[in-house]
Structures are given as C-alpha cells and as structure tokens.
Design a protein around this nucleic acid. Sequence first.
DNA 1: GTAGGGTTAG
Length: 476
Amino acid sequence: MPHFSLARSFSLSIHTKNSRLFTQHLPTTATSAEKFYTHMQKNPNNIEKSLSNVNAQLDSACVNQVLNRCFPSQSLMGIRFFVWAGLQSSYRHSSFMYDKACELFKITLNPSVFNDVIEAYRKEGCIVRVRTMKVLLNLCEKSGLADEALWVLRRMPEFNLRADSVMYNVVIRLFCDKGDMVMADNLRKEMGLIDLYPNMITYVLMIKGFCIVGRLEDACGLLMAMRRLGCTPNSVVYSVLLDGVYRLGSTERALGLLDEMEKDGGGCSPNVVTYTSVIQVFCEKGMMIDALGILDRMEAYGCAPNRVTVSTLIKGFCTEGKVEEAYMLIDKVVAGGCVSSGECYSSLVVELIRIKRPKEAEKLFREMLANGVKPDGLACSLMIKELCLEGHALDGFCLYEEIEKIGGLSSIDSDIHSMLLVRLCQESHSVEAAKLARFMLGKRIRLKTSSFDKIVEHLKKSGNEDLVKRFTRIGR
DNA sequence: GTAGGGTTAG
C-alpha cells in the first residue's frame, strides 16, 4: 500500500537521522532514548506508570532524542514523556528544552494538545501532581498561550489539586502580556479569595501591565493597595511604576516619584536599573541633556552607572548623530572607574554600525586592538559581519586574526565563523579560507548547516579534501 | 519581578 510505505519510509528516515547523531556524538544517550522510546511503544497505556522502571540515564540530549522520535506521528506521547521527564528528581528541563518542545510540537498552532494530555490522564487514571500541571503551564508560558494556561489552572480541582501563587503569577503574566488586564486583575483578586496572597511578583506584573495599557491610576492604586495589605513596595515595584509614569508622559510626576524613592532611603531606594530606565526614556525622546542630568544625579546619590547605563547613553548620542559627545561621555565614565574602556568603546562600535557609519566603527575597532583594549563579543561579531556584508571578507579575516592575538575570540559564535568562511570562499581567498577552516577544526567549531555545502564545495575545488573530511566528521 | 546592544546552542 503506497500510504503505508510512505509512512514507513518517513519514520525510517527520522530514525536513521537520529541514529547517525547518536553514533557520532552521543553514544550513551542514544541507548537511553532508545530504551525510553521502546518502553513507551510496548506500554502505550498509562506510560507514566512504568517509565521510572526504565533503567536509563535521563538528560537533555536524551529527552531531545525521544521527542524527535515521537514527532510527528506520536506527538501526544512525546508531550506526555516530556511532562513525565520534568517530574523526575534526577533531571530538570532547562528553559532551552521547553523551547525545543514547543517548537517541535508546534504548540502555538496546536493549543488543543493541553486538552488532549489532560483528557488522557483522566481517562487512563494517571497520577497527576501539582508539578505535572506546572510543566504544562510552563509549556503554555513558553508558547505565550494565556487562555490555555488559564484552562490548565481551571482543570486542577478535578484532580484534587490546588494552584499556588507561582502558578497564578504565570497565568497573570500571560494575560498582562496579552494586554488583558481585566482577566489579570480578576485572577489577582481570586488569589486573595483562596488564601493565596498576591506577592511582590504579582504586583510588579500587574503594575507593569496597567502602565503598558495606559491605566496609570490603576497602577498607582495597586501601589496603595499593596501597602495597605502589608506588602511594602520595594525598588522593583517603584522602578516599574516610575518607568510607566515616565513613558506615559507625566515627567513631573515621575521625577516626584524618583524624589520620593531617594528620600525614603530604605527598601525602595533607586538602584542602577531605576536610573537607567529613566535615562532610557530621556534618550528615546532625544533629551540628552536631561539624560546626562540623571547620570550626575545617580552618581551624587552614590549609585554607580554600569555597562547598560553607559550603552544607553551612547545609543542616545549616536541616534542623535552626536558621536563626539559619545566620546566625551566615555572619557568621563572611564575616569570614574565603574565601566571599563573596553565595554564603553565596544558599545560605541556597535552603535556606529547600527547608525550606518561602518568606516568609523572599523577605525575605532582597529584603534582598540592597537591599544590593547579588548572589544566584547558583540562588537567583534558585528564588526566582522559588517565587513563580510560589505564584501570585505579579507579585512574581516585580518581583524579576526588580530582579535585572536589578544585572546578575544572565545565570544565569537559559530555563525560568524561560518559566515566569514563562506565569504572568504566566495571572494576566492582560498589561502585564508583554508587557514580559518583549520582554526575552526582545531576549536571543534562546526559549520552552520546552511553554509555547509557551499563551503565544502569550495574547499574541494581548492584542493582541501582533508579539511572537508574533518568537517564532515565533526558534523553540522 | 525592574534597564538589556544579535543569534544560537544544550
């Protein structure tokens, strides 16, 4: 039957792909993933009940492999495995794994999976714990599904489970992000009714949400309400409110709030984030004098600016085309000793590229290298990328070698390496391409999948078959 | 839970 053979060859191709990965890089996890998968195939009913009897090591590579085996024909089983894995004491899903699961099973496009999973638990009489629901809720959160998250919360009583405030906060955050402050506020009120008091995190989320939708009075009202309820607002709460008040255009009121915070001197004194967000608002409005005023003000208050503060100001000056003033600012800040010249000039390089002044960026970048000032990873990456895009891959490679000399290569990722290598190939700089390829192999930096074929073709043509073999060996 | 330069990997 054509249909059958198609399905078979499809599942076979997934199998082969994974097996290749296993044998090349992850020989031990391959066995684990195989064990879990085979076990689920043999025990399709209430898989959770016996999965813990499988004698296999659980880690992220293994979970990833099992998910890939289950996709696409056994997605429900895959998600159930994912949830089960998240409950094991020996293992915890990283945020990356949640992303992986959401992406693989296309949860945003199939939000009904939550219903399917919970229905399956109910029908098969599975043991469902609060943690089970938390894993499902985290999947909703990663996929940005507010309604489904609320739905998961609502199904808990059926299993005699009670949500905690962390779970409520997850759902509240989703509704705040959606701009549905009516639902968010209802949930906050509901917490109080079931003896789950909203905490500092709840208030931060709510106040931020109210500010974003322009409901300033409600945001301020919450500040009063939390005080009344004995939850004393801290610097974070104040900073969020201050930022919102500012963004909504009430400059005077915002500065009044900042005054209040400074005078309080207690748990809600302004910190570097508070001041930086005020500076950011001034910068966005092109009010650079006022932004600098806040910098002086924070220093007078004894709060040291950091990398973010300075890069915000540099960005502001560059956007206004006032590059000279950015240099003056850097001189001042570096003399103050809180932020290194490497960090400051790196920010300037990044901003010069952003405002399309790549020549100045390159000049500054070269000066940094000549003076032993180490550019950060972003500055290096963007500088090399910019040169590649301009068709100056050879210059990019020279810079690359300079960066290596001062030990700054560790923060350049494989994408930039692949891009530089592709461009060197395209511009026919075979000697440099081979040199970069050898360097990458030495550091076990893989080629990006999308550039693999192009690079391999060029390396073959230029007589570097040995390099091709080595790249093939370390995989894509 | 607040500012946050670009993308991606586990």
